[in-house]
């Protein structure tokens, strides 16, 4: 996993509450057997005018010009700004994979659904909870800003900065912060205990040899 220390990027405002995981990645894409390559299907129903599935060639699909993600000025955005209860609905982890593969590294919202929030950390995305008033202010700024709003997210100092003019501090669980800073996923974390696991396995081989 890519370490996360500081990140500067363009903001993609998704101005709706209760964005569910089916909106982020519709269920027909659960059939895809890869773990990567979901980016083109992010917000599929909103993003395209025609329906699609795993087999459809993305190049043939008609973009919805009214959906914010398709605005030329917002191409390459890496920070998603959302509203309340972001990521609710089914527990599909592939919703987070779609964000990750699109290039999103930070999601800022007033609140998140639990499982989605956990899945973000597992995949190197930093979810930031900010007070509703701050989120409102950010939305207002994104609508007016030209060139588009850029933010700097500093996980070492736990602040979001806009040009040096504004700062929004945030909090995040310390163990999770460390994992992100070091770019360690759960597996890497567990493998730090490899010696313990090997010792345990050796003891088991003696005590219950029929297991091996």
């Amino acid at each position: 996993m890519q370490p996360f220390t500081q990140h500067t990027g363009k903001v993609l405002p998704i101005d709706r509450t209760n964005v569910d995981t089916d909106a982020i990645l519709p269920k027909q894409y659960l059939k895809f057997i890869g773990k990567f390559g979901f980016g083109g299907w992010l917000f599929d129903d909103l993003r395209y005018l025609d329906p699609g599935d795993v087999e459809t060639d993305l190049k043939t699909r008609r973009l919805n010009p009214d959906f914010v993600l398709n605005q030329p000025r917002l191409q390459g955005a890496t920070i998603l700004l959302g509203r309340k209860n972001f990521g609710c609905g089914s527990s599909r982890e592939s919703a987070v994979w779609a964000l990750r593969d699109y290039g999103i590294r930070v999601v800022i919202a007033p609140s998140f659904a639990d499982i989605f929030y956990n899945n973000c950390f597992k995949n190197g995305i930093l979810p930031i909870t900010l007070p509703e008033s701050s989120v409102d202010q950010l939305f207002l700024t994104t609508f007016m800003a030209e060139p588009p709003l850029q933010l700097c997210v500093d996980l070492e100092a736990c602040v979001v900065r806009q040009d040096n003019d504004f700062e929004w501090p945030f909090t995040v669980d310390e163990a999770r912060r460390q994992k992100l800073l070091l770019g360690r996923d759960d597996i890497a974390e567990t493998l730090l205990q490899a010696e313990k696991i090997k010792k345990f396995e050796q003891r088991l081989k003696v005590a219950e040899p029929w297991l091996f």
């Binding site: 982890e93 759960d186 597996i187 567990t190 493998l191 396995e201």
Partner: peptide, 16 residues
């Protein structure tokens, strides 16, 4: 377990 845990068990022989 879920798919992420499947990967975790394959790689570490352990479950969190």
């Amino acid at each position: 377990i879920g798919t992420t845990e499947v990967e975790h068990v394959l790689a570490t022989q352990c479950l969190l």
